[in-house]
Computed example of a mutant assay.
Amino acid sequence: MDIPLIAGTVATVVFAISNLPMLTKALRTRDVSSYSLVSLGMINAANAVYSLYVFTLPVGPIWALHTFYVVSCAIMLVLCVAQRRAATRSEVGHRVPAITVTDALERVTLAPAGDRSPDARAWSGAPRRDPAAR
């Protein structure tokens, strides 16, 4: 083996090992909320373009390192997108339903000014009174 090949192999192993804790934690916890979706998207796009170069080189440590980066970054992107979608779905499911235009139109009565009907008081913010309590 020559020196460049040994150096490439050692660097590949060190880079891969340095990324394993982040990747295993993300896979174990499924929590990637601290990662930027835009950044992960850009990294994956750059990896795709860089692959055009790397895979034209002779097979060697760079192939292993780049393949590791492609796979690990793709996993992180998938986890990040899945977490964002799940968060969006849970937020939508827990929101108080907003009043729709149709509901509002059904509640609004075209009453003259000074009308003290229960519907008019409800929209004016005045307290409601039971009509039977008069």
Score class of each variant (00 low, 15 high):
I75W: 06
L65E: 01
R89A: 15
P112F: 06
R85G: 08
V71S: 00
M1Q: 14
V70G: 02
T88P: 03
S90E: 11
A86E: 09
V96R: 13
R85H: 10
A7P: 08
A133T: 01
M42E: 05
L110F: 04
V78Y: 04
A64V: 11
R116Y: 02
M1D: 14
N44Q: 14
P127G: 07
E106M: 14
T24M: 11
E91G: 04
D115W: 05
Y69R: 01
I17V: 09
P58C: 06
S18C: 12
P127N: 08
S72G: 04
R95W: 02
I62G: 03
G41H: 08
L77S: 02
S18T: 14
P97T: 11
A87Y: 01
I17Q: 10
H94R: 15
L5P: 01
C73P: 06
H66F: 10
P21R: 12
P131A: 06
I43P: 08
R116Q: 13
Y53H: 13
L57R: 13
T102I: 13
V81S: 03
P118F: 00
Y69S: 00
A104K: 09
A45L: 15
A86M: 07
I3G: 02
V54Y: 03
A120P: 06
N47C: 13
S124L: 05
A46Q: 11
P58L: 10
G60K: 08
V92R: 15
A64G: 10
L79G: 00
R134A: 09
I62T: 02
T100H: 05
M76F: 04
A113M: 07
G125H: 03
I3H: 09
L79Q: 04
I62H: 04
V81R: 01
L57A: 15
S33Y: 00
K25W: 07
M76I: 05
S124A: 14
T102M: 12
S33V: 00
P21Q: 13
S39M: 12
I75K: 03
V10R: 13
N47G: 09
F55M: 05
T67F: 02
W123L: 15
V32P: 02
R89P: 03
A16K: 10
S34W: 11
T102Y: 10
N19Q: 15
R134N: 05
M1S: 15
T29D: 01
A87L: 12
V49I: 14
I17D: 07
A74F: 10
L57H: 08
H94K: 14
I3C: 08
S33A: 14
T9L: 09
L52Y: 01
W123M: 13
P112K: 07
I43Q: 07
S90H: 10
M1F: 15
D2E: 14
Y35A: 04
P112Y: 06
E106H: 15
F68W: 15
H66A: 07
S72A: 09
L110Q: 06
A104M: 11
A104D: 09
L65N: 05
Q83F: 03
A11T: 12
